[in-house]
Design a protein around this nucleic acid. Structure first.
Lengths: 224, 224
DNA sequence: CCCATGATCAATTACTCTATTGAATAGTAT
DNA sequence: ATACTATTCAATAGAGTAATTGATCATGGG
């Protein structure tokens, strides 16, 4: 094998990973899996795909070794194959956010004025958490909270937020977080909370970024 | 626009970056550009592509905002659009190296026993550079050396190495480096040097990784 | 001003995948 | 047995891909 053949094959093999990243549904599946391990039908529902189609996309990701799966009972539970997979996805996402004008336009159109939400970044949140001056609310679905959440956060899924307002403090600022910078849950939570007179802001990042930063997390239990 | 439409479009736009990464030639072009800015014909020659084809691939990368270009005289000089692009490529490459069995096999077949080369990692090299106990040789083409190299490294392109052996010290260990972990230049340089009685090892990484680590670099001048 | 040069473009060829659906199948728990 | 989940298969419809060739367009030197 000549040097050229070696290079062609090497880069060609690496392009298999690129191919796995070359479809929006697959990126959404990676984003979901960054929140925690999930079954196929669960993922299919969240991503609005048929089970057969979701399964096919997951096979593509699996062949590229970006995800792995285990059979647990009737369900096949998928997970990111390594922490580095989230880092890869995050870098792609962040490059897109910074450099693709189309995304900026899209976010401005759909998410409206995010400036008003006065996002807190994770370093600031961590500092203020230590001082006990802030209440943190995880507005993702409970299943994601259970698999991992910011230490000290309370689970109040967006869908339940309105009828559980009484649980939340009015004497402290509330910081809501969700899946990541493009996730809409926290935005909507903050708007709802403010309408009801709470002081609320959103976390810039989501849980996966918090975990990747090595900041304190917890899992399993259901409250605080 | 509903939430689903927003998600579909958001992930769809991000997939444009994935699509740009979904071809081996384009990954090779990114790898080359990580060494320094290059003209189209230069890139085409290095990657063994026709100029028209290289140009087309570069447009794909440009549309994904991974590279940018400026016209300088007759030439169009391409460059990585941001440092984050190298990070993205590196992460993809490293994931592939660790997780794709096919790549492991390929490297073992073509590069043979790399263990024997006793690679030095960049932290160790940096330590020993400070102590002056090691001579560093950049075996990439001169044009890449000129655009940036490890501070204190001497340029001896692999093609000229054999007839310039007299320039190299016999009383110190020599560390050769090139473009990155899958680049063959340094491997061949070390083998050649050892055949001629030098003490030589290769750097695990290449220049782009050294620079990304924030370690001392230089550019322009042609020696030392 | 003209011409050589470098890069892009347009048109063409020749495919190779691609995503998706619906039905069949395999595996598993009760 | 049977209800359930996931994968596989077959079929469809379509989109997109990479590459080549020759024309075209800028640019700078003579």
């Amino acid at each position: 094998m000549g040097q050229r053949a070696f290079k062609d094959r090497l880069y060609g093999e690496l392009a298999a990973i690129g191919k796995a990243l070359a479809n929006g549904h697959r990126l959404e599946l990676l984003d979901l899996l960054a929140q925690g391990d999930r079954s196929v039908e669960d993922l299919a529902r969240e991503a609005a795909l048929s089970v057969a189609n979701a399964s096919a996309h997951l096979q593509v990701l699996r062949r590229a070794r970006l995800v792995d799966a285990d059979k647990r009972g009737l369900h096949v539970i998928y997970r990111l194959a390594a922490p580095g997979v989230f880092d890869l996805w995050r870098r792609l996402r962040d490059l897109g956010g910074v450099r693709l004008a189309e995304i900026e336009r899209l976010v401005a159109t759909y998410l409206g004025d995010r400036e008003a939400l006065e996002a807190v970044d994770k370093d600031e949140l961590r500092r203020r958490l230590g001082e006990g001056r802030v209440a943190v609310v995880d507005v993702r679905p409970v299943v994601e909270y259970r698999q991992g959440h910011i230490l000290g956060a309370r689970s109040v899924p967006l869908a339940e937020l309105e009828r559980r307002l009484a649980e939340l403090p009015r004497d402290r600022e509330i910081v809501a977080y969700c899946r990541g910078p493009y996730c809409v849950f926290a935005d909507e939570a903050v708007r709802l909370l403010r309408q009801h007179g709470f002081r609320a802001r959103r976390l810039t990042d989501g849980f996966p970024e918090w975990r990747a930063a090595g900041y304190p997390i917890a899992s399993g239990a259901l409250a605080s």
